[in-house]
Amino acid sequence: MTGQTFKPVTAAEIVEKTKQYAKDGYRLIQIHCTKTPQEMFIIYTFEKIDLSCENLKMDVQVGDTVPSISGVFFGAVLYENEIHDLYGVNFSDLAVDFKGTFYETSVKQAFAQTGADNKE
């Protein structure tokens, strides 16, 4: 299946890259964050109308501030608020900022703790 490559990107260039993708006819279909004991990164997936898709991979840490791409694709708001609430990554210039009330979990940043130490 196509779209299994993950191109590295830095926080500084993400907005520019996204604008480039928008110009090339891509659209944003998802953003998600992954945290393992070794690494933590955010993956952006873009898709074209002919169903081809591309991924960008950005290394982050808990507490980092990353520029939001919601100015380019409004749909990013939901994904970015989700990552903020579950992983504790901050986004600057969010189009709609829920300020941590998007998912009200009893444990703050619930997904930022990795499960390596509490396996059954």
């Binding site: 009200e104 997904f111 990795t114 499960g115």
Partner: peptide, 18 residues
């Protein structure tokens, strides 16, 4: 309109580690 969800967040994705 401003949406808000999160009323039934269950964290099933996290269960993959267990």
């Amino acid at each position: 309109a401003v949406p808000s969800i999160g009323f039934v967040h269950r964290g099933l994705e996290k269960l993959v580690e267990k």
